[in-house]
């Protein structure tokens, strides 16, 4: 091992890295909101009584899940280059649509895991269908899905690294830039993987913590 490690490059280029960190954070959070929006709509549609709606939502999930995220990104960035969308928003669209399909599957499974008696009881006690879903079925489903959601969220954060390929200046992109000027490849990439670990752990632990607290709330009420 003749290689001399020099971790000071990370401190030297802290400005660049910090900027990349905030881009990654922005991509992840906006992508997360997009994925949840898409996932809740498509997932709820997947449990609809209307057959065409169920089929459409199932089709969406299968198509989007079976195409690599990188291809999703290239679709918006290259395929629809005539639209001239900024690369940041191409990445957001790709992340939302791709991860939305995963969220949809989880949401669908969560809704179906709520015992049917709950819905029947809601309807029987005079609530409208909308009220039953909104106040009885969906809140229970939400708690069921929290652990799988935490997994999808951490996946999404890591997936956001692919945005560097379509030149969004996030962490991976900046690490590439640092590598280009200093040739400190190993240090740069190990450094950013620590940053990813930090974001992933924070978000997944927060999701789990919030779901535990919600569950405790319900426990107190009965």
């Amino acid at each position: 091992m003749a290689y001399q490690f020099d971790w000071s490059v990370l401190w030297q280029y802290r400005g660049t890295l910090l900027q990349g960190f905030f881009y990654t954070l922005g991509l992840s959070l906006i992508g997360l909101c997009g994925a949840i929006a898409v996932g809740v709509i498509v997932g709820a549609g997947g449990t609809s009584a209307r057959r065409w709606l169920r089929a459409a939502c199932g089709g969406y999930v299968e198509v989007c899940r079976n195409i690599p995220l990188l291809v999703h990104m290239y679709f918006w960035y290259l395929g629809l280059s005539a639209l001239k969308l900024p690369s940041f928003w191409c990445a957001i669209l790709a992340l939302s649509i791709y991860s939305g399909a995963y969220v949809a599957e989880v949401v669908r499974a969560g809704i179906q895991s709520v015992p049917r008696g709950q819905e029947a009881a809601g309807l029987a006690s005079g609530l409208t269908r909308r009220q039953t879903l909104l106040y009885i079925v969906y809140p229970q489903a939400l708690r069921m899905v929290a652990p799988s959601m935490a997994g999808i969220f951490s996946q999404l954060i890591k997936d956001s690294s692919l945005a560097s390929v379509i030149s969004v200046a996030e962490l991976t992109f900046q690490a590439g830039a640092i590598e280009g000027t200093t040739f400190r490849t190993f240090e740069a990439y190990i450094g950013i993987s620590m940053a990813y670990l930090l974001i992933v752990t924070t978000i997944s632990q927060t999701t789990l913590f919030m779901s535990h607290r919600r569950a405790a709330d319900v426990g107190d009420r009965f």
Binding site: A2, Y189, I190, Y196
Partner: peptide, 25 residues
């Protein structure tokens, strides 16, 4: 396992392709 699961695939590829060669020669 924890380190890999917290790291994006792209970064793992970069480490193997660009980062390891100078270390293992």
């Amino acid at each position: 396992i924890e380190a890999i699961r917290g790291t994006p695939l792209l970064v793992v590829l970069f480490v193997v392709y660009f980062g390891l060669p100078p270390i293992i020669g």
